[in-house]
Design a binder for these strands. Structure first.
Lengths: 340, 340
DNA sequence: TTGTATGCGTTATCAT
DNA sequence: ATGATAACGCATACAA
C-alpha cells in the first residue's frame, strides 16, 4: 500500500529516540511520575503529538500492574433496570479513565462464578457486583484478591463495600403514600424471596401498614420475579383470590407493567378501579398507560455511587463530591386519592 | 492463612519448573500449538490443575498480539433496543472465548470518535459499530487498522462488513399489513432523517402504500427521534394537523409507546379509534396497554449475527450455522381490522 | 534531573 | 519433540 518508509510502529522507545532522550524520561512525562526539565518535556510532547503516540495499555498494565479496567457483574444486561445502572457506571468510570467490562450472570450462581473468572483472568483492578447470588463467603474471598463493591445487599469485610438504597424506607414510603391517599386495603406483589432488597422492601411496606393500623393479610401478598410476566401472573393470582383491595404495590416497575396488563385483561381500570404503584422509576414508567406512580430509586445513581465507591477502594483516596442516594415517590397517574 | 511457602504467584514459569519442563512446553500444551509427548502433557496438566493456573491474558496478549476482546460502540447502553442487541453480542462472543467491551457514543460524532480511541488503545481485536454517526470514510479508515462490522447502514470496503435487516422490506410489510386490515389512510412517525435505517423503512412504507394505490401525503409524515418522548411529540403534531387517518405507523416501538400515550391524552383509544404499529418487537411491547402490534426485527439476533460476522473477519474462517435474520409482523392488540 | 538495567508473563523463533 | 532466547512495550528501582 503505502511504500514510503516502513510504517514502523510508534512506541515509547521510538518517541524517546526521536526526542533524543531515554525511554524512562518519556515514561516520566507520560505519567508525571518525576520531575523532568521543562525543555525536555516540551520536546517529548512535541514528538508525541507529531506521531500521535498512544501508550500501549497492555504493556503498561503488564509492567505496572494496573489495567485501569473494572469488571461489572450484572444479572441481565438487557433489563431496563440494570441498563440504567450500567450507564451510570460507564459514565463515572470513563470520566476517571477507567473502562468497565460488563458480563451477565443471569441469576445463576455457577454462571456468575464463571463470569467472575473471566474478569479476573483479564486482570481487572476491581469488581462491581450488582445483586449477585454469590454467597457472602465467596464475595469476601474475592475481596482478598481485589476490591469489591456489592449492591442489593449488605456484605461486610475488608476491601469490600456495600452500596444500596434503603429499601426498607422505600417500602414504608410507598405504603404511607397509599395510606395518605385514603387507601386501606392494599395488596402487594413482592420480589423473589431470595433477593435481599425485595424482602427489605416488603418489610417496610408491611411495617408501615401495621403502624397505621391496616395490617396486610398474608393472602394479599404474592411473590413475583421482578420481571413483567411475573408481575402479570402475580396479579392474576391476586385477582383469583377474590380479595378486597383498592391498591396494589408492585415491588418494581417491571412487575407493575405486567400487573397493569393483567388488570386490564380482567376489565379493571387503573387507577379508577385500583391504584398501582411501583419502584425504580424506570424511564419508561413515564410512558405507560397510565403513566406509573413509583418510588424513585434512580438506578443510574446507584451505578454512579457504586462506581465511585469502587474507585475509592482501588485508588485508596476519597472522591470529593459523592452522589447522594435519594428516594422519593414520583406521583403520576396510576394512583388516585380515595378521599372524597 | 496458609503459611507454608510464600504464596508465590503461579505463573507459566512456575508450572514449568514444577513439571520439570521448559516454559515453551507448557505454552505448547496450553495452546496445543505443537506436538508434545503425551507423558509431558499429562504432567503439565496435573501441575496446572494442582495450582489452578490460569495464564495471564495481558502477558499473552502482549506477546501474541491477540487480546480476545472486541470493542462494541453503541449509542445508548440504556436503551431497550440496544440492550437486547448487546445481550446477543455478549452471548455469542463469550461462547467463542471473546469478551465485548461496551462503550456508548450518544449519537455524538465527537464522543464516538473518543470512545473508539479508548477501545483501540486497549488493543481490541475487532470493532462492532451499532448505528454510528461516523462517516463512511472514518469507518473505512478504521478498517485499515482492525476488522470492523457495522449495523444500521451499508458501508463498503475491505476488512469491513455491514449487517442489517432489510428495513425497506420491513417498511413494506408494515404498510401491507395495515392495508390488508382495511386501512387506507395512514400516518407515519418516522425516525431521524439522518439514520439510514429510518429512511429505508420510510421508503418501504411509502412505496408499498403507493403500490396499493393509497399514496401517503407528506403532511401525514412526522419525524421523531426513535425515543418515547419523540414519538409522543410527533403524535401530538399529527393530531394538531387535523388529518384523517385510521392507523399510524411508528418507525420503532419506543416511539409507538409515546404515540400511544399522546393518543390517550387526547382521548383516542388504541385500537378502537386508531390502530398503531411499531418496529423491533421489544420485549416490553408484549406488556403495553394494549399489547403492541409490531414488525419483529429481533435486536438480539442482529447482535449475534453482527458478532458472528466480526469473528469471521477476525479469525478469517467461516462460522458454520450463521443465524438468519428474520422479519415478520407480530400481531397483537394495537391494530384492528376495518373490514366488515 | 536523567539514563541504565531489569522485570512483567507470555508467545514466537530458532536451534538441537 | 523440546529447550534456550529473544521479543512484546512499558514502568521502575537503581545509579549517576
Amino acid at each position: 500500500m503505502n511504500g514510503k518508509h516502513e510504517p514502523r510502529k510508534v512506541t515509547l522507545e521510538l518517541v524517546a529516540a526521536e526526542a533524543g532522550v531515554s525511554p524512562s524520561t518519556v515514561s516520566r512525562v507520560l505519567n508525571q511520575s518525576a520531575g523532568v526539565s521543562l525543555a525536555k518535556q516540551r520536546r517529548v510532547n512535541e514528538v508525541i503529538d507529531k506521531y500521535g503516540f498512544k501508550p500501549n495499555l497492555l504493556a503498561r498494565s503488564l509492567a505496572g500492574g494496573k489495567t485501569m479496567s473494572v469488571g461489572v457483574l450484572t444479572q441481565f444486561i438487557d433489563s431496563p433496570f440494570y441498563a440504567e445502572a450500567l450507564k451510570g457506571i460507564e459514565d463515572l468510570l470513563l470520566a476517571h479513565g477507567y473502562v468497565p467490562i460488563f458480563v451477565s450472570g443471569h441469576m445463576d450462581a455457577a454462571e456468575e462464578a464463571d463470569k467472575i473468572d473471566v474478569l479476573i483472568q483479564r486482570k481487572i483492578d476491581g469488581l462491581l457486583v450488582l445483586s449477585s447470588t454469590q454467597s457472602d463467603d465467596q464475595l469476601q474471598a474475592l475481596a482478598k484478591k481485589l476490591p469489591v463493591v456489592v449492591t442489593g445487599r449488605e456484605v461486610g469485610g475488608a476491601n469490600i463495600k456495600s452500596i444500596d438504597f434503603d429499601h426498607y424506607e422505600s417500602g414504608r414510603l410507598a405504603a404511607n403514600f397509599l395510606y395518605s391517599q385514603g387507601h386501606r386495603a392494599v395488596a402487594v406483589i413482592t420480589g423473589p424471596r431470595t433477593a435481599a432488597d425485595a424482602s427489605s422492601r416488603l418489610r417496610g411496606i408491611l411495617d408501615e401498614m401495621t403502624r397505621v393500623g391496616q395490617e396486610v393479610d398474608g393472602d394479599s401478598i404474592v411473590e413475583g420475579d421482578f420481571q413483567e410476566f411475573g408481575g402479570f401472573q402475580a396479579m392474576e393470582e391476586l385477582l383469583r383470590r377474590d380479595l378486597r383491595f383498592t391498591a396494589v404495590i408492585a415491588c418494581n416497575d417491571q412487575m407493575a407493567y405486567g400487573a397493569n396488563l393483567a388488570l386490564f385483561r380482567s376489565g379493571f381500570r387503573v387507577p379508577d378501579d385500583v391504584s398501582l404503584i411501583g419502584f425504580d422509576n424506570l424511564k419508561h414508567s413515564a410512558f405507560t398507560l397510565p403513566p406509573l406512580t413509583t418510588v424513585s430509586q434512580s438506578s443510574y445513581q446507584i451505578g454512579t455511587v457504586a462506581a465511585e465507591s469502587l474507585l475509592e477502594l482501588i485508588t485508596d483516596k476519597l472522591i470529593p463530591e459523592k452522589t447522594e442516594l435519594q428516594v422519593r415517590v414520583v406521583v403520576r397517574e396510576s394512583t388516585r386519592s380515595l378521599r372524597s
